[in-house]
Simulated assay, not measured.
Amino acid sequence: MTGGPESAVLPPSLRRALGLIASLAALVVLVFGITYADDSEPGAVDARIWAVVDGVGPPWRHVAVVTDFLGEPVGAVLVVAAVVTGCLLLRGPRAAVFVVTGAGLTVGTTTLLKPVVGRTIHGDNLSYPSGHTAFLTAIALMVSLLAAGRLGLGRAVGTAFVFAAGLAAGATMGWAQVAMGSHYATDTLGGWCTALAVLPVSAWLVDRTADRLADRTTAGRPAYEPADRRTDAGRQECH
């Protein structure tokens, strides 16, 4: 940073593409939510995927457990704290606010959707959408968005970079959740799409709020007065 206004967390070049992705992702969350509402059994796709990855043994079981920890309350707090610290070290307070806001809104959205959809697994455990998958996807999307902005990536490259990061994180956590038997595969897909839908909106809200606050601060400052004019005024007062 060079003392100027902090750059937007949602780069202008990526707004249209990510807005379209967010709209499509929201549609997927809605369709899956309606399809599996009040259901407690795996669908045909869920059963096939579960048969392949459920009950993996060491060392992959250990990898799944570690990955799962990143979405648990303690692990999530540690991840958010690490990313926020990195943002502050790079002098990006807006980015730090974005990370906290984006993570909070993403997890909050999955928490609100679960009782609305009412899908359960292993008894009464609400499962759709997967909060773990949504959280790790959100972290990857936010970090990649901030990196794309700093690197000045164009629309095509930047969109592909952000989408690939979110896909990798979502696939990793989704695999861990299915392998541990915590979620159906469609739950994890719903969590991934939830993050894709929420993050661009979160970024837009943070940018809009930060820009408005900056405008108010600028409007409240007194107009700049050249040094020679102030000197002349002082001389007139002395005379």
Rank of each mutant, 00 (worst) to 15 (best):
Met1Glu: 13
Gly3Tyr: 15
Gly3His: 15
Pro5Glu: 12
Pro5Trp: 05
Ser7Met: 08
Ser7Ile: 11
Leu10Arg: 05
Leu14Tyr: 05
Arg15Glu: 14
Ile21Asn: 03
Ser23Leu: 15
Ala25Tyr: 14
Val28Gly: 09
Val28Glu: 12
Val29Arg: 10
Val29Tyr: 06
Leu30Ile: 03
Leu30Arg: 02
Phe32Thr: 03
Ile34Asp: 01
Glu41Val: 06
Val45Met: 10
Asp46Val: 12
Ala47Lys: 14
Val52Glu: 08
Val53Ile: 12
Gly55Trp: 15
Val56His: 14
Pro59Arg: 12
Arg61Met: 06
Ala64Gly: 08
Phe69Tyr: 14
Leu70Ser: 14
Gly75Ile: 02
Ala76His: 03
Ala81Cys: 03
Val84Ser: 02
Ala96Glu: 07
Val99Arg: 02
Val100Pro: 04
Val100Glu: 02
Gly104Phe: 01
Thr111Asn: 11
Thr111Gln: 11
Lys114His: 09
Lys114Ile: 12
Pro115Tyr: 10
Gly118Tyr: 10
Gly118Leu: 05
Thr120Lys: 12
Ile121Asp: 05
Gly123Leu: 03
Asp124Gly: 11
Asp124Phe: 07
Asn125Arg: 04
His132Arg: 15
Phe135Gln: 05
Leu136Ile: 14
Ala140Cys: 09
Leu141Gly: 08
Met142His: 00
Met142Lys: 00
Ser144Trp: 01
Leu145Val: 10
Ala147Pro: 04
Gly152His: 02
Val157Glu: 15
Val157Gly: 01
Phe161Gly: 03
Phe161Leu: 09
Ala164Cys: 13
Ala168Leu: 15
Ala169His: 01
Ala171Gly: 11
Gly174Met: 12
Ala176Trp: 00
Ala179Trp: 12
Ala179Cys: 07
Gly181Ile: 09
Gly181Lys: 08
Ser182Asp: 13
His183Met: 10
Tyr184Asp: 11
Leu189Asp: 01
Trp192Glu: 00
Ala197Ile: 01
Val198Leu: 05
Pro200Lys: 08
Pro200Ala: 01
Leu205Thr: 04
Thr209Lys: 01
Thr209Asn: 03
Thr217Met: 08
Thr218Asn: 04
Arg221Met: 12
Ala227His: 12
Ala227Ile: 08
Asp228His: 14
Arg229Lys: 13
Ala233His: 10
Gln236Ala: 15
Gln236Ile: 11
Gln236Thr: 06
Gln236Cys: 06
